[in-house]
Simulated assay, not measured.
Amino acid sequence: MGVEWRCRRITWSGGEPGLRWEGGKVSPLVYGRPLAFRAVGVRRCPGARGNPCPLAAAVPGRATGGMCAECARLDRAHSVAADTVADDPQPYRVYLAWFGPGMTKVGITAEARGGARLLEQGAVAFSWLGRGPLMAARRTEEVLRQALGVPDRVAYERKRAARHPLPPAADRAREVEELYRRAREVGGWTETLEPLEFAPHDHAGAFRLDGLPPLAGTVTELTDGGTVAGRLLAAAGPDLHLLAPDGRCLALDTRLMGGWALRRAGEEDGFSVPVTAVAAAASDPDAQGELF
């Protein structure tokens, strides 16, 4: 019997992607290298906020959250994004993020995290807009969403499709700069936040997105005995873009891996987990080292 590792999630450290496992071990994800594993058994809730799930509850294969209801509530209760934390004394930053042509958003992140939040979201390009206390940053985020007509989230299906192919870096920066200019013209927020100068940041290199082949499909879930085998072409946010043995470029949302016990597989085992064609996915508007 092969060694099993129970997956937690993807992590971005120092601008490099890796997979975090139960117990804290991280396996680097190396572009151009084979990735091959088999899911086994039952997918179990990995717990929340560093605490194991007390029930080791089974969770559905298609759930990107990968947590049982109780652990999901615990995780949400301590989330800045959920608007449940109001007294955090550390400074926050407001950012403008670009995911693809016409796909931009305004968001906030703790200043101490640097650009990690943007890597986790799969933002191809971004710029900081301002910095200050949490509540001032949150108010600015909401004011700008309304004034600029940008959403509070961009569906992952749209983000994935926009990476194949990307417009030139200059065009990406230009769109972010235009959003920055419009944001600075919105009155009031500079009274409570310190504005930051426009400075474009681009993650296409860190994600290895340039030159990706057309996206043929996305993994919908892992299954007991199902295998993933291919060469890692790119990673962006939670997504891995793989070149499957049959030549298709397929996307795997690593949030679907959380809670599964994984065993090493070989490339000859093929790609046998369920995959949805890109056209079908696009129609939805909302829509450890031993393994590698």
Rank of each mutant, 00 (worst) to 15 (best):
residue 286 D to E: 14
residue 138 R to A: 13
residue 58 A to L: 03
residue 126 F to P: 02
residue 233 L to R: 03
residue 244 A to V: 12
residue 108 I to H: 08
residue 164 H to T: 15
residue 4 E to D: 04
residue 94 V to N: 02
residue 164 H to N: 12
residue 289 G to M: 07
residue 85 V to N: 01
residue 262 L to F: 06
residue 11 T to S: 14
residue 227 T to W: 03
residue 247 G to C: 09
residue 249 C to S: 14
residue 272 S to L: 11
residue 270 G to F: 10
residue 27 S to R: 14
residue 279 A to T: 13
residue 83 D to P: 01
residue 148 L to Q: 06
residue 250 L to G: 01
residue 172 R to I: 07
residue 28 P to L: 12
residue 229 A to W: 02
residue 260 W to L: 06
residue 85 V to I: 15
residue 248 R to P: 04
residue 30 V to D: 04
residue 70 E to H: 13
residue 80 V to C: 06
residue 183 A to W: 05
residue 156 Y to A: 06
residue 205 G to M: 03
residue 122 G to W: 07
residue 222 L to D: 00
residue 220 T to I: 08
residue 87 D to K: 06
residue 111 E to H: 14
residue 39 A to S: 11
residue 230 G to H: 00
residue 108 I to Q: 09
residue 48 A to W: 08
residue 219 V to F: 05
residue 153 R to L: 10
residue 33 R to M: 07
residue 289 G to K: 10
residue 205 G to I: 05
residue 52 P to R: 13
residue 259 G to Q: 07
residue 154 V to C: 00
residue 104 T to L: 15
residue 235 A to L: 10
residue 182 R to W: 06
residue 20 R to T: 13
residue 11 T to Y: 03
residue 104 T to A: 13
residue 107 G to A: 12
residue 147 A to F: 07
residue 59 V to C: 12
residue 68 C to V: 10
residue 127 S to R: 02
residue 191 E to I: 00
residue 233 L to P: 01
residue 151 P to R: 07
residue 167 P to Q: 12
residue 269 D to M: 01
residue 56 A to P: 00
residue 282 A to N: 01
residue 54 P to R: 04
residue 245 P to V: 11
residue 56 A to H: 13
residue 156 Y to F: 10
residue 283 S to I: 07
residue 237 G to P: 03
residue 252 L to D: 00
residue 53 C to T: 11
residue 234 A to W: 02
residue 95 Y to W: 09
residue 87 D to P: 02
residue 199 A to C: 10
residue 285 P to H: 09
residue 178 E to C: 03
residue 224 D to T: 08
residue 277 A to V: 12
residue 237 G to S: 09
residue 161 A to L: 13
residue 181 R to W: 11
residue 247 G to M: 09
residue 191 E to T: 13
residue 210 D to G: 10
residue 250 L to S: 03
residue 102 G to Q: 04
residue 92 Y to M: 13
residue 120 E to A: 13
residue 55 L to G: 04
residue 257 M to W: 11
residue 78 H to N: 06
residue 198 F to M: 03
residue 125 A to T: 12
residue 197 E to A: 15
residue 138 R to C: 09
residue 171 D to C: 02
residue 251 A to T: 15
residue 174 R to C: 05
residue 3 V to W: 08
residue 23 G to M: 07
residue 102 G to H: 05
residue 16 E to Y: 06
residue 119 L to C: 02
residue 77 A to D: 15
residue 89 P to I: 12
residue 5 W to P: 00
residue 241 H to S: 05
residue 266 G to Y: 08
residue 135 M to C: 09
residue 240 L to H: 02
residue 73 R to A: 15
residue 260 W to Q: 04
residue 174 R to L: 13
residue 139 R to V: 13
residue 275 V to I: 15
residue 196 L to F: 10
residue 85 V to Y: 04
residue 193 L to Y: 04
residue 214 P to N: 04
residue 142 E to C: 05
residue 140 T to W: 02
residue 32 G to Q: 01
residue 241 H to V: 15
residue 32 G to N: 01
residue 222 L to P: 00
residue 191 E to N: 12
residue 9 R to V: 01
residue 47 G to A: 11
residue 68 C to I: 07
residue 290 E to G: 12
residue 132 G to V: 07
residue 172 R to P: 07
residue 47 G to F: 10
residue 95 Y to G: 05
residue 196 L to Y: 11
residue 178 E to W: 12
residue 198 F to Q: 04
residue 179 L to S: 04
residue 82 A to V: 05
residue 287 A to D: 11
residue 176 V to H: 00
residue 213 P to Q: 08
residue 270 G to K: 02
residue 227 T to K: 07
residue 97 A to L: 12
